[in-house]
Design a protein around this nucleic acid. Structure first.
Length: 157
DNA sequence: GCCAACGTTGGC
DNA sequence: GCCAACGTTGGC
């Protein structure tokens, strides 16, 4: 089983939006980066767990856990000219972008903020992709050691 | 294949 | 709102 981190802007779709969604499940649409696409398409498996990360907001950080409940399938929002994520270079015959479905497992009782995670950049979280300079990936792998550590932070304080 | 211009991301 | 970092595009 693999662990992941998924970024979402809470202004667009927050963990509370997910909590209110039918079956607490949503399709993770709108990924338009090839590295992220490849991980979604090739490496994300049903049953994998992912941190839900709020980006571009007042307190960026990890806010909960989701489970991958459906493996990669074409991101249909790329086919819709009305959609914000429309990409004319993707078509149903030869889809360029993919998405998975995720289900809410747990919303943390507190935010594990980016600021807090950075405190461990040279220790427990050395090498964590999220903390790498200039990192902009919206989907990234998390090692099991990193997972356990961040999970323990969420339960502390 | 190079690289400048441009758009996006995302912390602050 | 600013701006640095990065990815993509397209002319050559």
């Amino acid at each position: 089983m693999n662990y992941w981190l998924l970024k979402s802007e809470p202004g667009s779709f927050s963990i509370d939006d997910l909590a209110r969604a039918p079956r607490k499940t949503t399709c993770w649409d709108g990924v338009r980066n090839y590295q992220a696409r490849n991980m979604i398409r090739d490496d994300m498996k049903k049953g994998d767990l992912a941190f839900y990360y709020h980006s571009n907001c007042e307190v960026p950080g990890v806010v909960g856990v989701v489970e991958i409940v459906r493996e990669a399938y074409p991101d249909h929002t790329a086919f819709d000219p009305e959609d914000h994520h429309f990409d004319p270079k993707s078509d149903p015959e030869n889809p360029r972008w993919f998405m998975v479905d995720v289900k809410l497992v747990e919303k943390f009782s507190r935010v594990v903020s980016l600021r807090e995670l950075k405190e461990y950049a040279d220790g427990k979280l050395a090498g964590f992709r999220l903390l790498a300079k200039g990192n902009r990936l919206s989907v990234m792998p998390v090692s099991s050691a990193q997972w356990k550590f961040i999970r323990s932070l969420s339960k502390g304080k």
